[in-house]
Protein backbone atom coordinates (compact mmCIF):
# COMPACT_ATOMS: atom_id res chain seq x y z
CA UNK A 1 0.00 0.00 0.00
CA UNK A 2 3.00 2.26 -0.38
CA UNK A 3 1.30 3.81 -3.40
CA UNK A 4 -1.70 5.09 -1.37
CA UNK A 5 -2.13 8.87 -1.32
CA UNK A 6 -4.63 11.03 0.50
CA UNK A 7 -7.04 13.19 -1.47
CA UNK A 8 -4.88 16.32 -1.42
CA UNK A 9 -1.55 14.69 -0.62
CA UNK A 10 -0.95 16.83 2.46
CA UNK A 11 -1.71 20.21 0.92
CA UNK A 12 -1.12 23.20 3.23
CA UNK A 13 -2.34 26.80 3.09
CA UNK A 14 -0.33 28.61 5.75
CA UNK A 15 -1.55 31.71 7.53
CA UNK A 16 -2.69 33.04 10.86
CA UNK A 17 -5.16 30.22 10.54
CA UNK A 18 -3.52 27.39 8.64
CA UNK A 19 -5.47 24.90 6.56
CA UNK A 20 -3.75 21.54 6.31
CA UNK A 21 -4.82 18.27 4.78
CA UNK A 22 -3.84 15.74 7.41
CA UNK A 23 -2.91 12.91 5.06
CA UNK A 24 -4.11 9.34 5.37
CA UNK A 25 -6.14 8.34 8.38
CA UNK A 26 -7.82 5.05 9.06
CA UNK A 27 -11.58 5.39 9.31
CA UNK A 28 -14.15 2.69 9.86
CA UNK A 29 -17.88 3.17 9.68
CA UNK A 30 -19.48 0.88 12.20
CA UNK A 31 -23.23 0.54 12.12
CA UNK A 32 -24.57 -1.43 15.04
CA UNK A 33 -26.61 -1.15 18.21
CA UNK A 34 -24.47 1.33 20.13
CA UNK A 35 -26.09 0.35 23.41
CA UNK A 36 -24.68 -3.17 23.06
CA UNK A 37 -21.85 -3.75 25.52
CA UNK A 38 -19.88 -5.87 23.06
CA UNK A 39 -20.12 -3.15 20.43
CA UNK A 40 -18.95 -0.62 22.99
CA UNK A 41 -16.01 -2.67 24.08
CA UNK A 42 -14.87 -3.30 20.49
CA UNK A 43 -14.98 0.45 19.84
CA UNK A 44 -13.12 1.45 22.98
CA UNK A 45 -10.66 -1.40 22.61
CA UNK A 46 -9.69 -0.35 19.10
CA UNK A 47 -9.45 3.36 19.80
CA UNK A 48 -8.26 3.45 23.37
CA UNK A 49 -10.71 6.21 24.24
CA UNK A 50 -13.95 6.35 26.20
CA UNK A 51 -17.17 5.59 24.37
CA UNK A 52 -18.60 9.00 23.38
CA UNK A 53 -21.98 10.40 24.30
CA UNK A 54 -24.32 11.40 21.46
CA UNK A 55 -22.98 14.52 19.73
CA UNK A 56 -19.47 13.92 21.00
CA UNK A 57 -16.10 12.72 19.78
CA UNK A 58 -13.29 11.37 21.89
CA UNK A 59 -10.01 11.57 20.02
CA UNK A 60 -6.42 11.16 21.10
CA UNK A 61 -3.75 11.40 18.45
CA UNK A 62 -4.65 9.30 15.40
CA UNK A 63 -7.25 7.33 17.30
CA UNK A 64 -10.73 8.19 18.35
CA UNK A 65 -14.45 7.58 18.30
CA UNK A 66 -16.96 9.98 16.71
CA UNK A 67 -20.67 9.58 17.40
CA UNK A 68 -22.29 9.79 13.96
CA UNK A 69 -25.86 8.73 14.69
CA UNK A 70 -27.74 6.51 17.14
CA UNK A 71 -26.56 3.44 15.21
CA UNK A 72 -23.32 4.63 13.67
CA UNK A 73 -19.85 5.16 15.08
CA UNK A 74 -16.84 6.42 13.20
CA UNK A 75 -13.73 4.67 14.46
CA UNK A 76 -10.42 6.44 13.83
CA UNK A 77 -7.21 4.43 13.78
CA UNK A 78 -3.85 4.85 12.04
CA UNK A 79 -4.23 4.18 8.30
CA UNK A 80 -2.04 1.09 8.36
CA UNK A 81 -4.12 -0.52 11.10
CA UNK A 82 -7.50 -0.47 9.38
CA UNK A 83 -7.49 -3.99 7.99
CA UNK A 84 -6.48 -5.46 11.32
CA UNK A 85 -9.13 -3.40 13.08
CA UNK A 86 -11.80 -4.60 10.64
CA UNK A 87 -10.79 -8.19 11.22
CA UNK A 88 -11.05 -7.68 14.94
CA UNK A 89 -14.51 -6.14 14.60
CA UNK A 90 -15.70 -8.94 12.32
CA UNK A 91 -14.42 -11.52 14.75
CA UNK A 92 -15.77 -9.94 17.91
CA UNK A 93 -19.19 -9.03 16.55
CA UNK A 94 -19.63 -12.21 14.57
CA UNK A 95 -22.90 -13.09 16.21
CA UNK A 96 -24.29 -9.57 16.09
CA UNK A 97 -26.10 -7.65 13.39
CA UNK A 98 -23.63 -4.99 12.31
CA UNK A 99 -21.90 -3.44 9.34
CA UNK A 100 -18.26 -2.35 9.37
CA UNK A 101 -16.72 -0.78 6.29
CA UNK A 102 -13.37 0.78 5.61
CA UNK A 103 -14.03 4.37 4.56
CA UNK A 104 -10.48 5.70 4.99
CA UNK A 105 -10.11 6.37 1.29
CA UNK A 106 -13.61 7.78 0.91
CA UNK A 107 -12.86 10.78 3.07
CA UNK A 108 -10.44 13.63 3.50
CA UNK A 109 -9.33 14.98 6.85
CA UNK A 110 -8.49 18.68 7.00
CA UNK A 111 -7.11 20.61 9.96
CA UNK A 112 -8.01 24.23 10.65
CA UNK A 113 -5.43 25.56 13.07
CA UNK A 114 -5.08 29.05 14.50
CA UNK A 115 -6.43 31.78 16.71
CA UNK A 116 -9.68 32.38 14.82
CA UNK A 117 -10.30 28.83 13.59
CA UNK A 118 -13.76 29.10 15.18
CA UNK A 119 -14.63 32.05 12.93
CA UNK A 120 -13.46 30.15 9.86
CA UNK A 121 -15.90 27.31 10.54
CA UNK A 122 -18.68 29.76 11.49
CA UNK A 123 -18.36 31.40 8.09
CA UNK A 124 -19.33 28.13 6.44
CA UNK A 125 -21.56 26.07 8.75
CA UNK A 126 -24.99 26.90 10.20
CA UNK A 127 -23.87 25.81 13.64
CA UNK A 128 -23.63 27.66 16.95
CA UNK A 129 -19.90 27.69 17.62
CA UNK A 130 -19.90 29.85 20.73
CA UNK A 131 -17.24 28.47 23.12
CA UNK A 132 -19.94 27.87 25.74
CA UNK A 133 -21.80 25.68 23.28
CA UNK A 134 -19.13 23.97 21.16
CA UNK A 135 -15.70 22.99 22.41
CA UNK A 136 -13.24 20.13 22.42
CA UNK A 137 -15.20 16.90 22.79
CA UNK A 138 -18.19 18.12 20.81
CA UNK A 139 -18.82 16.63 17.39
CA UNK A 140 -21.09 17.96 14.69
CA UNK A 141 -22.24 16.76 11.31
CA UNK A 142 -23.52 19.54 9.09
CA UNK A 143 -22.43 21.19 5.88
CA UNK A 144 -19.63 23.55 4.91
CA UNK A 145 -20.79 25.66 2.01
CA UNK A 146 -22.54 23.20 -0.26
CA UNK A 147 -21.07 19.90 0.91
CA UNK A 148 -21.55 17.57 3.84
CA UNK A 149 -18.87 17.73 6.50
CA UNK A 150 -18.29 16.80 10.12
CA UNK A 151 -16.00 18.55 12.55
CA UNK A 152 -14.70 18.48 16.08
CA UNK A 153 -12.06 20.36 18.03
CA UNK A 154 -8.68 18.86 18.78
CA UNK A 155 -7.97 21.79 21.10
CA UNK A 156 -9.18 25.36 21.64
CA UNK A 157 -7.61 26.56 18.38
CA UNK A 158 -7.84 23.51 16.14
CA UNK A 159 -10.71 21.97 14.25
CA UNK A 160 -10.54 18.60 12.53
CA UNK A 161 -12.85 18.52 9.52
CA UNK A 162 -13.84 15.47 7.51
CA UNK A 163 -15.51 15.57 4.12
CA UNK A 164 -15.91 13.23 1.18
CA UNK A 165 -12.78 12.64 -0.84
CA UNK A 166 -14.30 13.84 -4.13
CA UNK A 167 -14.96 17.31 -2.70
CA UNK A 168 -11.74 17.65 -0.70
CA UNK A 169 -10.44 20.31 -3.07
CA UNK A 170 -13.65 22.35 -2.82
CA UNK A 171 -13.76 22.05 0.97
CA UNK A 172 -10.10 22.97 1.30
CA UNK A 173 -10.73 25.96 -0.97
CA UNK A 174 -13.66 27.13 1.17
CA UNK A 175 -11.61 26.88 4.35
CA UNK A 176 -8.61 28.55 2.75
CA UNK A 177 -10.64 31.48 1.42
CA UNK A 178 -12.41 31.88 4.76
CA UNK A 179 -9.15 31.79 6.69
CA UNK A 180 -7.48 34.29 4.40
CA UNK A 181 -10.40 36.71 4.75
CA UNK A 182 -9.42 37.17 8.38
CA UNK A 183 -11.13 37.07 11.76
CA UNK A 184 -14.65 38.28 12.50
CA UNK A 185 -14.21 38.70 16.23
CA UNK A 186 -17.75 37.77 17.13
CA UNK A 187 -16.92 35.38 19.97
Amino acid sequence: MSNAVSALNGKVAPGEVTIREDGLRGMITLRADLADSKVKSVCTGLSGVDFPMPGHANCVGDKGLCWMSPDEMLILVPYAEVEAALELINKNLKKKHFLAENVSDARALILVEGSYARDVIAKLAPVDLHPDVFGPGDFRRSHLGQVAAAFWMRDADTFEVICFRSVAEYTFGLLEASAQAGPVGHF
Binding site: Q146, F164, S166, V167, T171, G173, A177, S178
Partner: peptide, 15 residues
Protein backbone atom coordinates in the same frame (compact mmCIF):
# COMPACT_ATOMS: atom_id res chain seq x y z
CA UNK B 1 -22.69 35.16 -3.14
CA UNK B 2 -20.12 35.19 -0.32
CA UNK B 3 -17.12 33.03 -1.19
CA UNK B 4 -19.14 31.01 -3.71
CA UNK B 5 -17.50 32.24 -6.89
CA UNK B 6 -15.03 30.92 -9.43
CA UNK B 7 -13.68 27.57 -8.22
CA UNK B 8 -15.90 27.76 -5.14
CA UNK B 9 -19.08 28.59 -7.04
CA UNK B 10 -20.16 24.98 -6.70
CA UNK B 11 -18.43 21.79 -5.62
CA UNK B 12 -16.82 19.90 -8.46
CA UNK B 13 -16.37 16.27 -7.51
CA UNK B 14 -13.16 14.58 -8.55
CA UNK B 15 -12.24 10.92 -8.85
Amino acid sequence: TGVARDALFQPIRKT
